[in-house]
């Protein structure tokens, strides 16, 4: 396709509704976001949205229930528990950096840190802890990072997402930036996150059933059969960008952290279900 033809295709891309000049209103966004999915899928129980593609397809749902008897993420839970308690060189542990030793707190992340002036995700908090204690950071996409966040998610299962936006213009700006990233088309395929996860959940892309955006982060981190292993939220974001033929940003880039902030906030009230398992 020539540049001109591609440009014409971009202009002709479908849209939802006319934009309005308005001030950011996260509470109104949350309400509209959740209503959209409830209306689109009236048969899906609200709390089932956290189960991604399994909430969209009966056959997949049955397969998943069987898979959960011997979940593929189980080994990661053991490793995560061990790493949380393993002493650093200075004698402290990863657990020491978190409220309640990191148990049952997943639902509070990400949060806007007013001292740092930025969104802090669980993954960033883990590496900030390690570095503050003289340890090298984990890779953001898999292995140890996936294991410790899997353990922290597992100990938080059932607790509803409770992401807060403090009364700070910087927090609101981060939220808006995350929303912009979510709806912005990118890559040669001209897809936004919303193209798949708002317009098309329940539809198939090749053999995969697309998950709804509502509750999509509640199941993170996940074991993906496609990856033959565990992956973090960072891994999910970078691989989504690559799949639409866009060069991904670096894991935990400001845009990705803000995106996680936005997506988590609009899923407030839905229970943590991670770690998850996906095809």
């Amino acid at each position: 396709m020539t540049g001109l033809a591609m440009a014409a295709a971009l202009i002709a891309a479908p849209s939802f509704a006319a934009p309005a000049a308005d001030a950011p209103d996260p509470a109104a966004d949350l309400k509209a976001f959740q209503k959209y999915f409830r209306d689109k899928f009236p048969k899906v129980k609200f709390e089932d949205f956290v189960n991604g593609p399994y909430s969209m397809d009966e056959g997949l749902y049955r397969q998943w229930k069987e898979k959960e008897e011997f979940p593929p993420y189980e080994f990661a839970l053991d490793l995560g528990k061990e790493l949380m308690a393993k002493p650093f060189g200075n004698g402290k542990t990863l657990a020491d950096c978190f409220p309640n030793k990191g148990v049952g707190i997943r639902q509070d992340y990400p949060y806007f840190d007013t001292e740092q002036g930025k969104v802090v995700t669980l993954e960033l908090a883990v590496n900030q802890c390690r570095e503050a204690n003289g340890e090298p950071p984990y890779s953001y996409v898999k292995d140890e990072m996936a294991a410790v966040t899997a353990y922290m998610a597992f100990t938080s299962r059932g607790k509803p997402f409770d992401v807060k936006i403090p009364d700070d213009p910087r927090a609101l700006a981060a939220y808006e930036n995350g929303k912009r990233y979510f709806y912005t088309r990118r890559g040669q395929l001209n897809f936004s996150c919303a193209t798949c996860h708002v317009q098309s959940p329940g539809e198939r892309i090749r053999a995969e059933v697309l998950a709804p955006a509502l509750g999509i982060l509640n199941a993170m981190p996940i074991y993906r059969s496609e990856w033959s292993g565990m992956g973090t939220t960072s891994r999910r974001f970078t691989s989504c960008n690559s799949q639409v033929r866009g060069v991904p940003l670096k894991p935990q880039d400001e845009d990705y952290r803000d995106l996680e902030y936005y997506l988590s906030y609009v899923s407030n009230g839905l229970p943590i279900s991670g770690p998850g398992a996906r095809p």
Partner: peptide, 20 residues
Amino acid sequence: RAAIFQADEQKTNWKLMEIR
């Protein structure tokens, strides 16, 4: 060039996709 066009066009048009 198409990527640049896309980025410029999406600076405001991302709002067309927003759930309201």
